[in-house]
């Protein structure tokens, strides 16, 4: 148990200060394909596939044996004539979605994908609302006016531009 704890501690420590773990020498020269176009595709694919035993590293960056196996596997599939999508499907069928560094757009990842744009849209909507409220409301401090004063002020301001600051 102590050892387990120490191990976890070490992992946490590594995670804390190291960001990604040590990738000493990822892609080895003997893995590189002769065909530069295929190799280019292999590199692009590799950077989107996760080395599943590493912490947030693509198989392109990692020196773990598993990453090497996957790099070789990706190249084998490409040489066999698979399209990029076929290679990805094949890997997902074997290793699950965890292997994808860019998750597929699906129901269970929908919130993930739309969070940023949604925040932006919500922000814009909020701003427009605030602007409209601001146009309607008085430029002076809020909360100090009764309904009658409000009406009187509206009367005065009628036809004004709204910018009274």
């Amino acid at each position: 148990m102590i050892q387990m704890r120490r191990f976890i501690l070490l992992l946490a420590l590594l995670a804390s200060v190291l960001a990604p773990l040590t990738a000493v020498h990822a892609l080895a020269p003997d893995e590189v394909l002769a065909d530069p176009v295929l190799e280019q595709r292999a590199r692009a694919l590799s950077s989107e596939l996760r080395c599943m035993v590493c912490q947030n590293q693509s198989i392109d960056d990692s020196d773990a044996p598993l990453a090497k196996d996957l790099r070789v596997l990706v190249r084998e599939r490409l040489v066999a004539g698979d399209s990029d999508a076929q290679v990805i499907d094949y890997l997902v069928s074997r290793y699950g979605e965890f292997v994808l560094l860019k998750p597929k757009v699906a129901w269970h990842t929908l919130a993930l994908w739309i969070a940023g744009p949604l925040a932006l849209i919500a922000g814009i909507a909020g701003l427009l609302l605030a602007l409209r409220r601001q146009r309607k409301a008085q430029p002076v401090a809020a909360g100090g006016l009764s309904a009658a004063e409000q009406a009187e002020l509206d009367q005065i301001l009628k036809g004004g531009t709204g910018d009274k600051s």
């Binding site: 950077s47 989107e48 996760r50 947030n56 693509s58 699950g96 979605e97 965890f98 292997v99 994808l100 560094l101 860019k102 998750p103 269970h108 990842t109 919130a111 993930l112 969070a115 940023g116 744009p117 925040a119 932006l120 922000g123």
Partner: peptide, 30 residues
Amino acid sequence: AATVSVLVGTLYPLALEAVTGEKISVGAPF
């Protein structure tokens, strides 16, 4: 909005795994 997108991207895999047990990765390409 950018902060929210990074925040959700960072926490989503943890939350999904905790709730449904499904493991996904959210990395640099995302």
